[in-house]
């Protein structure tokens, strides 16, 4: 018995180095098998800031619109529940609060023109409101399309034109300066279910279809030049964005997750989970890529989480 244990000890000491290498290799293999690949993707995002308040220290309440002005380096948040707009610096510090002297009603989105004037969507009165800050003038517009009222939703500036999403028709509308409709954007396919979100990326205007999460990319003439179909069922996709590599980020309000897809529609990884703490989601509403940062607006938590990698 004694001889046997001595032999075992000898064997152990002889093979100590190769054993270490072997176990190290085994651990690496195991980690790879257990999906380290995907966690590295998700884990590479780091929560760097949580925007929760305006300058006066009042918490955001039902924020519903995000807009980034790259020329000025300003982030604008439509704080619908508090009837105000708030601007933030590039390091996410609150800058100014604007409520048009108490006139603003439930703003759900805004864009800033080059001359500094603002377009705001006031949902409770279904108005596309023009605000000239210099002249302190507020003009409310109730749009119509072919005799039917337009329900203005999300919007962006593209090719020097105001582009809006009309929830009444599910179409994206490009507006002239006089707010008449210059062009309608919708794919011709019969099974198209209307758009729920839009984003402009260079020469392409993207729209995300309601519930399916399919993306259609249009050129300025209104022709579909690119499409994206997620290869995963999404219960309630509400917003999307694309990064420089062409990856598609889709925010799902029901799953309370951000899903990152390859250009071909295959799922790369998912991130975030349900909760109330910073970095968790309650009722997420919008995702926005700002340079290398990922901004996620959460209506339920009244917060914009900023993630960097």
């Amino acid at each position: 018995m004694y001889r046997m244990s001595q032999k075992l000890l000898r064997e152990r000491s002889f093979s100590g180095r190769s054993c270490r290498t072997f176990y190290l290799g085994l651990i690496v293999c195991l980690l790879m098998v257990l999906g380290l690949g995907s966690t590295l993707h998700a884990g590479s995002w780091r929560l760097v800031a949580s925007i929760e308040k305006g300058k006066a220290g009042i918490f955001l309440h039902y924020p519903l619109g995000l807009n980034y002005d790259a020329a000025l380096g300003r982030l604008y948040v439509a704080d619908a529940g508090n009837n105000r707009l708030i601007s933030y610096t590039t390091d996410w510090k609150p800058l100014k609060i604007f409520d048009a002297a108490g006139q603003l009603r439930g703003p759900i989105g805004m864009v800033r023109e080059r001359d500094g004037s603002l377009w705001v969507v006031e949902r409770p009165i279904n108005s596309l409101t023009f605000i000239n800050l210099k002249l302190r003038k507020v003009e409310r517009h109730h749009l119509t399309l072919k005799g039917r009222p337009v329900l203005v939703d999300k919007m962006t500036l593209w090719k020097d034109r105001l582009v809006i999403l009309d929830r009444a028709t599910g179409k994206i509308l490009m507006l002239r300066k006089d707010l008449t409709v210059e062009r309608e954007f919708a794919p011709g396919s019969r099974n198209f279910k209307g758009f729920f979100d839009l984003k402009s990326k260079g020469d392409i205007l993207w729209g995300m279809e309601t519930l399916s999460g399919r993306l259609f990319g249009f050129d300025a003439s209104g022709k579909v030049i690119d499409t994206f179909v997620p290869k995963k069922h999404l219960p309630q996709p509400v917003s999307f964005d694309r990064d420089a590599e062409g990856n598609v980020y889709i925010l799902d309000r029901y799953m309370k997750k951000l899903l990152i897809f390859n250009r071909d529609g295959s799922l790369r990884y998912e991130m975030l989970k349900k909760g109330f703490k910073p970095g968790q989601l309650s009722y997420p509403w919008e995702v926005l890529m700002v340079g290398r940062s990922l901004l996620i607006l959460d209506e339920g938590n009244g917060r914009i989480d900023v993630w960097n990698r």
Partner: peptide, 29 residues
Amino acid sequence: NLGAALCFSCHEEIQKTFDHFHNHLLGGY
């Protein structure tokens, strides 16, 4: 061809019920 506006032409009061932050007016669907 008027879509929802056809219904609103009689049910006028209903139109305002969609003027909320979240609504079920899913045009195109």
